[in-house]
Design a protein around this nucleic acid. Structure first.
Length: 467
DNA sequence: TGAAATGTTGGGGCG
DNA sequence: ACGCCCCAACATTTC
């Protein structure tokens, strides 16, 4: 009997899964496995919200596999020895997986591949996560892109949509010893803070398909404008599904490719930012922990403000739109992208806390925490990244609130203390002479104008030091 | 994928 | 009718 292993990682789907597809086509029997080894991803091992998602996504994948006559064999052990044991006991001659791009994982996977090949195992690695492998796009000089627009122009020209692979019908599998249940991984929180998560999300391939269908039929046609309005569900909300590979960008792009509208183009562009983030992480693997732009190594951050950081984390800054965003994050493990920019700007610029403080908090609390996107996003707002917002581009949360949440619907949804504040003052309740004193809502923790001026002064200092 | 400061223009009130 | 001032409204510059 010719047996192969399909090693699932963050490609938790059956449709358009190149590794699974190739294995099922080529071999008599296929063993589907998942190995939980978070230590191997240090220092960016999955956070609490990610683990919550992973639990449910693994359950969904296992159920889908069982419908096809297979199951997910789960292990919790260092990866290489676990694979070796399994290969030995199952007599598998081949292994298939889909590539991941985080520096620690890449390093580990290269080692595993070399080791297994040395032992005569056929190792087959595919791309299930990206439109392009991150090393493919090159500037005319042959280097990496550091600006989004030329990057996107370049890949957009080469891009050929292709129909996704079908999910396999039945999967003939083989018996395996030593596997454990998904529950035994203990991925769920011990204190149940996940009630709202369950209401908002359906992890797994079916949930992803339902979400993409809903977005394409409802959200896409007004995407360009709607995506900036946090009170409306104008974004796709596909980020966690994409992160765990419950759906791939090629599947989405395929469903969009006959749509020539500007809305479709703008949505595709967001997938392009995801590609760009992976491109950057590939070429600059130290950026999760270090400034891409080294002149920011001299930036005079304020000393660590534990109390301020805590207010920010808990949504108690006293600035309504920021608190709404942070509470949305805490409550459902996700935040609207424009709000991510606003809260990041407040932390890194007005509070002048290092962007890593924010990146780590997002890492633990987001269900879509993704090293490439998170790193790129934080360095972008901080000004230290590629194609970043210049440091002096400081968001004013009051103006942004008025512009994108004019009636305060979003604020009131997440900050109920402000329910009775009239729309006119919803983004700056301190300006309302009547109600602000009686509100059970904190005064703003900083003066927006003063802290802005201080941030600009700090920026000037950095330029003088490096100039 | 900014905001604030500064500059310019043009219409209307008014002496 | 004219010049002057004020100040939106918009444009440009600066951070």
């Amino acid at each position: 009997m010719d047996t192969a292993i399909v090693w699932f990682r963050r490609d938790l789907r059956l449709q358009d899964n190149p590794a699974l597809d190739a294995a099922v086509r080529t071999h008599d029997r296929v063993i589907c496995i998942y190995i939980f080894a978070p230590d191997e991803e240090k220092p960016w091992q999955p956070g609490a919200a990610s683990l919550w998602w992973l639990h449910h996504s693994l359950k969904a994948l296992d159920a889908d596999l069982r419908r096809r006559g297979a199951k997910l064999e789960v292990f919790s052990a260092p990866t290489l020895p676990a694979l070796r044991r399994l290969i030995k006991s199952s007599k598998a001659g081949a292994i298939y997986w889909n590539r991941l791009y985080e520096p620690a994982i890449r390093k580990r996977d290269d080692k595993i591949q070399a080791d297994l090949e040395q032992h005569g195992i056929s190792v087959n690695v595919s791309n299930a996560a990206l439109l392009f492998e991150p090393w493919v796009p090159k500037t005319k000089q042959g280097g990496p892109f550091k600006v989004f627009t030329p990057f996107w122009r370049n890949v957009r020209e080469q891009w050929q949509p292709r129909p996704p692979l079908r999910a396999p019908g039945t999967i003939r599998s083989a018996r395996v010893s030593g596997s454990i249940s998904i529950d035994q991984l203990n991925l769920l929180p011990t204190i149940s803070w996940d009630a709202a998560f369950l209401r908002h999300w359906t992890p797994g391939e079916r949930g992803a398909q339902r979400r993409v269908a809903a977005f394409l039929s409802r959200g896409l046609k007004s995407y360009k404008k709607g995506r900036d309005r946090p009170a409306e569900n104008g974004t796709s909300s596909l980020s966690p599904h994409l992160h765990f590979g419950e759906i791939g960008p090629r599947q989405i792009a395929w469903r969009l490719h006959t749509n020539r509208s500007t809305d479709a183009e703008f949505y595709l562009r967001e997938l392009g930012w995801r590609e760009f983030s992976h491109h950057l992480l590939h070429h600059f693997p130290k950026t999760p922990d270090h400034n891409l732009n080294v002149s920011f190594d001299k930036f005079p951050w304020a000393s660590r403000n534990a109390k301020g950081i805590r207010c920010w984390q808990r949504g108690k800054t006293g600035i309504p739109i920021v608190d709404a965003g942070m509470r949305q994050l805490w409550s459902i493990g996700w935040m609207h992208n424009r709000m991510r920019m606003l809260v990041a700007s407040l932390l890194t610029k007005n509070l002048r806390q290092h962007w890593l403080e924010g990146a780590r908090w997002f890492w633990d609390t987001l269900v879509d925490a993704d090293l490439a996107n998170n790193t790129q996003g934080w360095q972008w707002t901080a000004g230290s990244g590629a194609d970043a917002a210049p440091y002096f581009r400081i968001f004013n949360p009051v103006l942004q609130g008025k512009r994108f949440d004019p009636q305060g619907v979003y604020v009131k949804r997440w900050v109920p203390e402000l329910k009775r504040v009239p729309a006119k003052f919803i983004h700056s309740p301190w300006d309302d002479p009547k109600v602000s004193k009686r509100l059970a809502y904190p005064k703003p923790m900083i003066d927006l104008g003063e802290s802005r001026a201080e941030a600009l002064a700090a920026f000037k200092k950095m330029r003088n030091k490096s100039g």
